[in-house]
Design a protein around this nucleic acid. Structure first.
Lengths: 246, 246
DNA sequence: GTTAGCATACTGGTCTGACCAAGATCAGAC
DNA sequence: GTCTGATCTTGGTCAGACCAGTATGCTAAC
């Protein structure tokens, strides 16, 4: 009986995966549940254990289950952070995409700040304020300054209380850390950038505090636009001399 | 020599996965490349073939590579369909995620339409116009209407000429189709929705034609907001009677 | 009766070696 | 030079085995 029956159209990996997907989607397997052991699963479905492991591993990278060593496999609460892995791979392979990714980041942040205006609580405000202060303190340090900048922007997204936006943002932020850093090095070349960085971020902060989505969005967009402009000038070699060598 | 050396901190699966991820992220493995065979990989990394298969399968579900039967494993261009899988699972167990993802969609589209205003070419305009016409033609059909609606919005994103935004947007398509469809069924309950759908989309189209990012963004946001409002009223049971039973 | 301690049955993590089917390749026949 | 077929290689899978910890329950000590 080598022919596959109608009831198990798939074979091997697909069979196990489909079996589990079915229960997962139907709800008979809920987060927190522990799956039967790999051995049981293999005999139950008539496949070998390595195949079962493939399926479980597949579900693991999808963030659906968690394989706990010597404990068992349990269904986890779906976590959007899986997307991080995917985007990291996906976006990494297209280096020319950096500018493109930046656009997506702008998209996420502008939406996030709108939501933040509605949803932010005291803790969010405090986090933003701390990040803002940090930006001022570290304005002359390339590394710490870049991190403070990043923290501020992340605080905005966190304040949106949207997990999806947060995950999307953080996965892109990873790719943009490089550009973030190199941008920060521009501060040396463009002393006027200090004011831009501090004032812009404060204005953004104030707009959120005022819970004014339109103003927050617009201010944030302008912030990004000015950053672009600085980078453009850096490329062109138009170094800022107005208050150079402070 | 059972002890693991310092060079391979991970063991088994992690080792293989990390090995491949490294080359994938570094770019030494590009889409189209064929990996060395599973057997070679296993001897190379000092692990068994089942383990190698686990890693390859993991990359497969992430859409990074494709295992071709009796051919080999090749690096693929990252495919968003993976995210579809994920969202399908995730939504099955966490319906509240839908709203969250919707926010991300709004983010992507609003940014996309801004870019579209700058970058759209004649072909994009034509595509938008066709989609717009289709919306008018299929206004009374739930299925075709929903698809036309979706096509229009996708055309906007495509017109942004941003690969990343397109990827993000289409990755959420799976979810959106559901909500799209159910929203479309509201058309029966809300006859006034027909005008909303047609007029709104036309206004959006016109804003893009006029290459006015601000207006396009604002119009699109209003479009989404009105859609939300209709859904809210549907939930509350506030059925539209002004021009009911047309 | 209670509890400390240990043996055992489980779990995942991994390896070995083997078989199958079919694409890829190249030698040899035409 | 082309066609054909044997062979090599590839993924797909299996069976059985060992390890290392966990969980449990049973036994022995208190």
């Amino acid at each position: 009986m080598e022919l596959k029956r109608a009831t198990d159209g798939e074979k091997g990996f697909e069979k196990v995966f489909a079996f589990l997907r079915e229960r997962l989607l139907a709800g008979s397997l809920k987060p927190g549940d522990r799956l039967i052991s790999e051995r049981e699963l293999s005999t139950l479905l008539g496949v070998s254990r390595p195949i079962v492991r493939e399926a479980l591993r597949a579900l693991t990278v999808l963030g659906i289950v968690e394989i706990r060593d010597r404990i068992g496999t349990v269904v986890t609460r779906p976590d959007v952070s899986v997307l991080n892995d995917f985007f990291t791979f996906a976006l990494a392979q297209q280096a020319d995409m950096l500018d493109d990714v930046m656009q997506a980041r702008v998209a996420i942040e502008c939406q996030a700040i709108r939501l933040a205006c509605e949803r932010a609580n005291i803790a969010d405000f405090e986090r933003l304020q701390r990040a803002l202060a940090k930006i001022g303190e570290t304005i002359d340090e390339a590394d710490a300054g870049g991190m403070a900048d990043f923290d501020f922007h992340r605080a905005i997204v966190v304040a949106s209380h949207s997990e999806t936006l947060t995950v999307l943002h953080s996965s892109m932020a990873g790719l943009l850390t490089h550009s973030h850093r190199s941008r920060r090095e521009l501060v040396q070349a463009f002393p006027s950038m200090k004011n831009y960085l501090i004032d812009d971020h404060r204005r953004i902060f104030e707009a959120v505090i005022a819970r004014d989505p339109e103003r927050a969005d617009a201010t944030l967009r302008k912030h990004f636009a000015i950053g672009d402009e600085y980078r453009r000038r850096a490329v062109v070699g138009d170094i800022d001399k107005t208050s150079a060598s402070g």
